[in-house]
Structure formats: C-alpha cells, structure tokens
Computed example of a mutant assay.
Amino acid sequence: MTSRTVATEPNDLGKFFIERGNAGDVDGLVALYEPDAVLAFPPGNLATGHAEIRKVYQQFVAAAPVLEPGRQHPALVSGDLALTASTLTTGEVTVEIARRQPDGSWLWVVDQPVLVP
C-alpha cells in the first residue's frame, strides 16, 4: 500500500484510512481528502484544507494509535457523491461525504469521524 493508491469505490477510503493510520502515513491520510475538505476532529474542532488536516493527523499518528476496522456500512451513492459510514469497535460512528473525482477515484469532502450514538 502506498499513499498513491486511489479509492476506486467510496468505501475504499475507510479501509485505506485504517491501513495508513496504523502505518503512521500522514501523507497517505491527507491524500484521502480533497484539497479543501473539512475534517471535524478532534471533537469540537474543524480542520479545513490539506494543511490543517495534515496538522491534525501529525498529532494523531504521533500518539501511535492502533486502529481496528469496525463495521463499514454500504455506501449510499448518488451520482458523484457518496455517504460513507462505519460503526467503530468503540460504538462510535463515523460519517463522511465522498466525491467522485474526474479520474473516477473517490476522495472525502467532509469527514465527521466521531459521532456517539
């Protein structure tokens, strides 16, 4: 897996996130997002754009988390937009909006990684 591997399906993004996060691959994590994407993490904060998202993930991987895949829900696709969601092993839910890129790959536009049911 390299940070250049692209998501050919919206739910590939979640799988790549787990792999790249566990590898400490900050560049690979940032590559999952459109340049002006919005990330709501840590809870209560918003990071907009690659530079801010990079700062969030630099701190995130510095803590060396061990990420486990939860239950990924089927993507809800409408044209070039997709709603992706996963229920984590902690019971928290992630919700993201992905957009199909001109080359057919998918990137996240909006990411809300922590919703407590």
Rank of each mutant, 00 (worst) to 15 (best):
I97D: 13
L46M: 13
A37K: 12
P43L: 13
H73Y: 06
D25M: 06
D36Q: 12
Q72M: 09
K15N: 09
G49R: 07
T8A: 13
H73T: 10
A85S: 15
L115F: 06
P42V: 07
R54K: 15
V110A: 10
D36A: 14
G24I: 04
L115Y: 03
S105H: 10
V38P: 07
K15Y: 01
G70P: 11
A85G: 05
G24W: 01
P10K: 08
D103N: 12
I18S: 05
T8G: 09
G70E: 10
D12H: 14
L83Q: 12
D25F: 07
V38S: 13
P43F: 04
D36T: 15
Q72I: 06
A37Y: 08
A51Q: 08
N45L: 05
S105K: 06
G44H: 10
F16D: 03
Y33H: 14
N11E: 11
H50W: 10
E19Y: 00
S105V: 08
A7M: 01
F17Q: 09
E92V: 03
D27S: 15
A40F: 08
E19N: 04
E52P: 04
T90A: 12
V61D: 04
G70Y: 11
S86P: 00
L107E: 08
E9G: 11
A7Y: 01
F41A: 15
D25I: 01
E68P: 03
H73P: 03
A82Y: 03
V30H: 12
T2S: 14
N45W: 01
P43D: 07
A37E: 08
L88W: 05
P113I: 05
A98F: 02
V77M: 10
P74G: 14
P117W: 05
P65G: 15
Q58K: 14
Q101G: 07
S105F: 01
T90M: 04
W106N: 06
L76A: 13
D27N: 15
V6H: 09
D80F: 00
H50F: 01
V56E: 01
E96Y: 05
V26M: 11
E52S: 09
T90E: 07
A75E: 07
V30W: 00
G21M: 01
K15V: 12
A75K: 08
P43E: 11
